[in-house]
């Protein structure tokens, strides 16, 4: 059992994402702590991958920057160890299966447990394939976060029934990235999830403004923002910390008291 439930105890949750090592590991630590100070309830840390097929251009570029700057799985673990000494906020990895598979599932999740990682999101690991690592992950207290998409239909209940940590509800078709409008009928998807599970839900993909976050917070337990934060890193580079703080604070303020 991980610490993820804590993230949903301060009103509606705000979940922020950065790619680990973009632009440097030291700066990632600063950005993560800026998010926490700004009110983030959970932080997702991307372990960069050469071919992130679920990501739009903004996060693809962040992966390239991080890898070019020398980020590796081992160095991301070091980053988490260092962050963990300064905050108790739940931390979740986001990466693709190959780096985890390559590291070895036991070794990877043991290091997660030692470093204080609470969960992992793997976009290319659907329900059908998760069996190859969920037991190992659970053995080390790491939740493998389930994703539910606008196309999941009859799969929603099946996925939700086995979900732990939180349920990542993908807001829109396509890849990650900022969108001006979210058209999916998320209310009915979350309604179906609720019939099968009491695990908190968080909606991600496309969210970037406080207004969008506020509207979504009415139907979900949390909102996830990735590309909009990575865009700040892209724009301000090493100076991005204060801008991330301000942005996260505005987003958390928008969702905190929504019921």
């Amino acid at each position: 059992m991980s610490n993820i439930a804590e993230a949903f105890k301060n009103g509606k949750a705000f979940i922020g994402f950065v790619t680990g090592g973009d632009p440097t590991l030291e700066k990632s630590e600063e950005f993560i702590l800026a998010m926490v100070q700004g009110g983030a309830d959970l932080v997702e840390i991307g372990i960069p991958f050469s071919d992130p097929i679920a990501e739009g251009p903004v996060i693809q570029e962040a992966n390239i920057r991080a890898l070019a700057a020398g980020a590796t799985v081992d160095k991301i673990f070091d980053l988490v160890v260092s962050v963990r000494q300064k905050t108790e906020v739940p931390l979740v990895f986001l990466t693709y299966l190959n780096p985890v598979f390559n590291y070895g599932y036991s070794r990877f999740f043991q290091r997660c447990a030692e470093a204080g990682v609470d969960g992992i999101i793997i976009p290319d690991l659907p329900y059908e394939e998760k069996g190859e690592l969920t037991e190992t992950a659970a053995g080390f207290g790491v939740d493998v976060i389930s994703l539910i998409a606008p196309t999941s239909e009859q799969r929603i209940k099946q996925i939700a029934a086995e979900a732990t940590g939180f349920i990542y509800v993908v807001s829109s078709m396509g890849v990650t990235g900022m969108r001006s409008e979210i058209k999916t009928d998320l209310r009915s998807i979350i309604g179906v999830i609720r019939e099968a599970s009491s695990v908190p839900t968080a909606v991600g993909f496309g969210i970037n403004t406080p207004k969008q976050a506020e509207e979504l917070a009415e139907i979900t337990d949390g909102v996830i923002v990735g590309s909009a934060i990575v865009k700040i890193v892209e724009k301000y580079g090493e100076e991005a910390g204060p801008y991330i703080y301000d942005y996260v604070q505005s987003m958390k303020n928008a969702v905190r008291d929504i019921v």
Partner: peptide, 12 residues
């Protein structure tokens, strides 16, 4: 082999 793809494509 297997089916290691995003959930969004599974039903398809």
């Amino acid at each position: 082999g297997g089916q290691y793809i995003p959930e969004i494509l599974m039903n398809e």
